[in-house]
């Protein structure tokens, strides 16, 4: 029972990670550049929600469209400053410019909201429900549902709409897309907007349970990166699977002594949040070393 409960929490966390990782990979595919501030956009989403709720105290779900809109706009600004002036330079330049933007976001948040952890309002209401003898928090279920909806919506957008076709064409081969009359720069700007909006929603979803502080970005970008690496660099579905795997591991690992009572008490201390992060990182190194194409991928992709 406890296992199942933890599993639900893990999936909820993973759903939010997946949104962040998805945005990360979308920009990566469209521009070949890493957006290092993707984690800071998660943080920004959390604080945008907190700012909104202080003006207008409503449940998180009502705030969702506003968060999408504001963080999406932020993404447009972001691409205008951090990407377009550098698009013909080596990708490392964009990496550095996004680090710089991340630092700016972080400290703007620090100046505005202070260093203390804050929480966003729950999506619907606080509390738990009983599902077949399983006590689950309403927030976790809502998070999973909303993330699933967004991932599905993103899939439909990319696969079933004309805009999505243009976005994919741009990611695949920019010059070819331009030759076909697609407005490549607009598509890239929209990809940034989509990516930061996804991260922003992740911030709204996460910050109720896990709080948000201005320096959280580094943690989230690492998670997005590990998810993208485990899932196979540049693969959307891989990144989602990777995010789930990480999150479930993160939630389960510290609870292992409870789940497996036969573990000797002497080593219980080894199972903490900290050691979970360390094991995760070592796993990342192992994946990089043994399967650079990711756990699920077959083709190794080279991206300069």
């Amino acid at each position: 029972m406890l296992t199942l409960q933890l599993l639900v929490n893990g999936i909820a966390l993973g759903a939010a990670y997946a949104l962040c990782a998805l945005g990360f990979v979308l920009v990566l595919n469209a521009t070949g550049a890493v957006n290092f501030a993707q984690g800071d956009m998660v943080m920004a989403g959390g604080f945008v929600a907190i700012a909104l709720v202080s003006l207008w105290p409503v449940p998180g779900l009502v705030l969702l469209p506003a968060v999408v809109l504001i963080t999406g706009l932020l993404g447009l600004v972001f691409s205008a400053i951090g990407y377009f002036p550098l698009k013909s330079r080596p990708p490392v330049s964009v990496f550095i410019s996004t680090i710089a933007l991340g630092v700016i976001f972080q400290n703007v948040a620090m100046v505005t909201f202070g260093p203390e952890p804050r929480a966003t309002p729950p999506l619907l209401v606080a509390g738990n429900v009983d599902v077949g003898g399983l006590t689950v928090s309403i927030q976790a279920i809502a998070v999973i549902l909303i993330a699933a909806l967004l991932v599905g919506g993103q899939h439909v957008l990319l696969m079933r709409t004309r805009l999505g076709q243009s976005l994919r064409a741009t990611a695949q081969d920019r010059e070819m897309a331009a030759a076909l009359g697609i407005r490549v720069n607009l598509m890239i700007a929209l990809t940034f907007a989509l990516s930061t909006a996804l991260a922003g929603v992740a911030g709204l979803l996460l910050a109720n349970t896990y709080f948000v502080t201005p320096t959280d970005g580094t943690n989230y970008i690492l998670k997005a990166y590990i998810a993208a690496t485990i899932g196979g660099w540049g693969r959307l579905h891989g990144a989602i699977a990777g995010a789930m795997l990480i999150a479930v591991f993160e939630v389960m690992f510290p609870a292992l002594p409870l789940l497996i009572p036969v573990l000797p008490v002497a080593i219980h201390g080894m199972f903490s949040q900290t050691s979970a992060s360390i094991v995760l990182y070592l796993a990342l190194l192992a994946v990089l070393f043994l399967r650079p194409q990711g756990l699920f991928g077959e083709i190794a992709q080279r991206r300069a």
Binding site: P91, V92, F95, Y225, T274, S277, I278, L288
Partner: peptide
Amino acid sequence: AIPVLRLESHYFALATLGIAQVALLI
């Protein structure tokens, strides 16, 4: 360096960032 150094720039940067995070946690 053994697993990380042969990686291309993005992988490399982010993979190395993990070390810093782990050191800080410890």
